[in-house]
Design a protein around this nucleic acid. Structure first.
Lengths: 385, 385
DNA sequence: AACAGTTAGTTCGCCATCGAACAAAGTATG
DNA sequence: CATACTTTGTTCGATGGCGAACTAACTGTT
């Protein structure tokens, strides 16, 4: 009674929404007979149940299938340098509840993970459900094979740390770890029914990072370092020294941190990028101009990458993407600077999944990881018995 | 007796070099029994024969398998604006013979394809073999699904032309078409035993284009326009008007055409980039400086793309890559400008396949296309009977 | 020379999936 | 209301590939 990959795919489709066997067959491309066989197997295992009838479409109505064990939960964590957002998701990647806590990466991995685990437990206590797996987005490069953080500029003291292992020790369930921009790219890709097979997702908050979907798959690069765009040279930053050691990097003028610093230097006191965005909402022209200029500079740097990668979609997420002036600035730069063939059919939009994109991506990877573990059916049914 | 994809893979491996069944099993990952079954099938069909014994490696020696029909030929064409290189390849993608002819894209597709087809026929007459398929590299974007040339800046009058159909009409065999840089990227990837799964191949001649391999597959982008890098903005070109309508594009200073123009403007008369390369070989300091500077500028533009895409390898091909000073300039810029994590393990090298990379890639796609046509075994054995 | 060890290739039963034919359960129409 | 049509789901052989156990053919050692 091995639950192979095919059964897992079917299971996940059913988890997303009750469907009939024939719909499953059409969507997965499997033969109707194969789907029926798998469903029988899953029903025998107690994972799937037959619900009501689907509305007839001119013929015999289908029977809807649904997951019989619905209390399984995936914890997802989106970590920043000072804050973390946490949530609980089900097998359809729906974020059922969420919360936010203050942390400080300077406390180091052990202490930080302990705080995060405590909050996950608090969420579970409040909302119920059985924790099955956990996924976490980190603001730095993550070696997905060795599962360790690599040379994180914003997380000193976390180098070569296996955050997944720490989480597993705390929570007792399998954990996965990845870069926040990668997770956001995956989450946004999954959230859209009409997503292009190739896309770039920009996560613009305190820093700026991008995640890449190539051919419908998350692309991580040869050393898990793909998606950097903040060290593109832009003229407007020519004289600015960057933390990377070079001059002229985008990061020095278009990141949330740079915007805040520049505004403070010109006499407008702001604490963080969220305050700047509040000012934009209140119609402050200086803040508006700063955000627009950041968008223009990002668009300029992105134009090189769009010409090269030729994506179908560019998604903007993170704090800055909430400002429509930012999205508009990026879009207009791309349409102006890129080649006609690259902009033909190119969409440049704020992410539909918004701030949840990263958590949705984390849920996806955590679910895949969970379902690839041996002894799955037991894990699924155990808590229900 | 359907010759499925598995049999095709086995057939191609044998075509590359006689191998034993056990080697096939190890390389393809198939079960030994499956390989044996397929071989029996292929031998029954007369496509494969058993040759001598392989040297024993401490146990029972294997029996070598080879293709019994070896006269099949794939014509490959690498087309420029003024010249074309042609060749004949076998099923192992080995270029058996080649030639070059002068053409002029201004003559239009019909006339040009006629000239190319004539030369293919001349090659076949001289070297023998049965023409089975043809692949052509074009110096512009090619929609690989609709198989037509799209908005080719260097080929006015070729827009929306189906060059493959014209070739098929002339030569009577299936044809495939793709962009020259894509083909070069594929060819170089296939030529290297140790190729990284993600790579960028730069084709630098009169113009500059790149081809992308992502996850071991040729990546073409959402509108078959991927790989453009010549319209990256570089400071040194700030005041130069580009054909694309913007200013500051790399193309205006680092392409072969730009180098030739600049040298002529400074009083050094040269006809084309090959003359400049000859001067470099002869130790001319001005030519040397020009090539080096072009390499530096390319390296600068590439650094953005390498940070973003994080490839394992960067291959340089095309006329300019013959100058070691060019390769060195690109390499040093990348190592200096890119992030440490992106350069960790990054190789920057002249292409091993050299000028043949494009033709090898074209052979690969033509072979795949041929083997995916229905009625394959007949086509294979027909001429031998 | 005998025998252990190693590698090559085959036989045969198992399993997953496919696809064609069929049964089931509805809707539309005369 | 009977009949044709449509869609859903099942039954049942056919097929492709896997893998364990086996036979085959060689090398090296005692």
């Amino acid at each position: 009674m091995s639950t192979g990959d095919v059964a897992v795919g079917i299971l996940r489709r059913i988890a997303a929404e009750p469907v009939t066997r024939s719909v499953l067959a059409k969507e997965t491309g499997l033969a109707p007979s194969t789907v029926s066989a798998k469903i029988t197997e899953l029903m025998d295992a107690g994972l799937v149940q037959e619900g009501g009838a689907a509305p007839s479409r001119g013929g015999r109505p289908g029977r809807l299938l649904s997951i019989s064990y619905t209390s399984g939960r995936i914890a997802v964590i989106s970590m920043g340098a000072k804050h973390a957002r946490l949530g609980l998701a089900d097998f359809s990647r729906t974020i059922l509840c969420s919360s936010a806590i203050d942390i400080d990466v300077a406390d180091g991995p052990e202490r930080t993970v302990e705080l995060l685990a405590n909050e996950v437990r608090a969420l579970l206590e409040r909302d119920g459900g059985d924790l099955l797996s956990v996924g976490i987005c980190l603001p730095g490069p993550v070696d997905a094979v060795r599962r360790v953080v690599v040379a994180p500029s914003r997380m000193p003291g976390w180098h070569n740390q296996d955050v997944g292992a720490l989480l597993e020790k705390q929570l007792g369930v399998p954990a996965i770890t990845d870069n926040d921009a990668n997770m956001a790219a995956l989450g946004e890709y999954l959230s859209r029914a009409d997503a292009a097979a190739n896309s770039i997702t920009v996560l613009a908050g305190t820093g700026v990072g991008t995640g890449i979907i190539a051919g419908g798959e998350l692309y991580r690069g040869s050393t898990y370092a793909s998606g950097d765009i903040t060290h593109t040279k832009v003229e407007a930053a020519a004289d600015r020294m960057c933390t990377c050691g070079n001059r002229g990097c985008l990061e020095t003028i278009a990141s949330g941190a740079a915007i805040v610093r520049d505004l403070n230097q010109s006499g407008i006191k702001v604490g963080d990028i969220f305050e700047v965005l509040d000012m934009v909402r209140d119609g402050d022209p200086t803040a508006n101009g700063a955000i627009r200029e950041a968008g223009r500079q990002l668009g300029l740097a992105l134009s090189t990458v769009v010409n090269f990668f030729n994506p179908g979609d560019v998604y903007l997420t993170g704090a800055l993407s909430a400002a429509s002036v930012y999205v508009a600035a990026v879009r207009s730069q791309l349409y102006e600077r890129c080649l006609p063939l690259a902009t033909a059919g190119l969409r440049v939009e704020a992410a539909q999944a918004g701030g949840e994109a990263g958590m949705i991506g984390a849920a996806e990877l955590a679910i895949i990881h969970l379902l690839n573990q041996p002894g799955l059916p037991a894990r699924f049914t155990e808590p229900a018995e």
